[in-house]
Amino acid sequence: MTSSPPSASPVAVVTGAARGIGLSTTQLFLEQGFTVVMVDRDAPELERVSSALSGTEPLVCDISEPDQVTELARELTQRHGRVDALVNNAGVADFRPLEETDYATWREVMATNLDGVFLTSQAMLPLLKAARGAIVNIASISGLRASTLRVAYGTSKAAIIHLTQQQAAELGEHGIRANCVAPGPVDTKLALAVHTAEIRAAYHDAIPLNRYGSEREIAEVIVFLCSTKASYVTGQVVAADGGFQSTGVGLPAMRNR
């Protein structure tokens, strides 16, 4: 490990950056002139995508492992000495009924989705304080409204929402803002693979905008919340979901009656 001079450009750290929303967020930060530290536990994929993106620094880390997160913070301290934007995007999903969710599965989901956000945010605090930076945690619409098959996933995302508010309440005096983005259905490769035509049609009916979101659309919200344009916004949850949350339990067939 070698020291590098502090970066002249603002520094963003994006976890789960090798694909999906994390990759789109990385690309948008680059367009805004950031140096982006791409963090992911999938070393081959991280190396593949980062090699094609000038201005990125790939660092392999499993955010559910405290020792790895400590090493990540140490590396960033030596390289940059500051973090202007931390995007806690890394997460895992598991969809099964409550009675089939064993403790090992529960802990696997919580270890990444909740513990990882706590560990990474805590480890980055000195760097965020140095920059008076911003934290954006990625939750899910599943953290705002319950659904079948999401007892571990939905609970972890609901906890992230409250963790964000705790961060905002405590870190504001240091000039650090903390906000949360809760995506609705997004056209990721995973969604395309696991959502049947029937599921997609049902989502389209339930979402006022009648479509899935794109990874880029979610990234736009994330990068905005990290920017000076959101300098007085903290402790907020933005549901980037095409209006899905606003429909509540209302049936699509009854909207116009």
Rank of each mutant, 00 (worst) to 15 (best):
F95M: 06
V87R: 02
S227Q: 05
V233A: 06
D115T: 03
Q167S: 05
D241G: 10
T105A: 13
E108D: 14
A130P: 03
A146S: 14
L23T: 05
L53C: 12
A158G: 15
L163G: 09
A93M: 10
G235K: 07
V37R: 02
A230V: 07
P44L: 10
L144V: 09
T228I: 00
A134D: 07
N88W: 02
N88Y: 02
I63K: 02
V233I: 15
G172Y: 01
H174M: 00
R41F: 06
I207K: 00
L98H: 12
S156Y: 04
R177T: 09
L125R: 03
A130C: 06
T228A: 12
S3G: 11
A18V: 05
G91Y: 01
T196L: 01
T164Y: 06
L76A: 10
A73Q: 05
E99A: 14
A18S: 15
T26K: 08
N256V: 11
A93D: 09
L209M: 14
V11F: 09
S147L: 13
Y212A: 08
F29H: 08
S24Q: 13
V36Q: 08
A202H: 12
A130I: 09
G33C: 12
A240S: 12
S51H: 11
A193T: 12
A139C: 06
S3D: 06
A201Q: 13
A202L: 09
R41L: 09
L114R: 03
R200Q: 14
G55S: 11
D94A: 14
P5L: 14
V83N: 01
Q78A: 14
V223P: 03
S214G: 13
Q167F: 13
R257V: 15
H162G: 01
F95N: 03
L209D: 01
V14M: 02
S24G: 09
Y212R: 03
V92H: 01
E217Y: 07
A17F: 04
M38E: 02
F29Q: 05
E45A: 12
A12G: 09
R132M: 04
S9P: 00
Y203F: 15
A152N: 06
V136M: 02
H174A: 10
A159W: 04
D115E: 07
M110N: 08
Y153G: 07
V14D: 00
V221F: 02
R48A: 14
T70Q: 08
L209I: 13
V223Y: 00
V83S: 01
G235R: 08
C226E: 03
L209Q: 13
I176T: 01
G184K: 08
E170G: 11
A182N: 06
E65H: 11
R216T: 14
V249C: 03
N179T: 09
R216S: 13
R107E: 14
M1I: 11
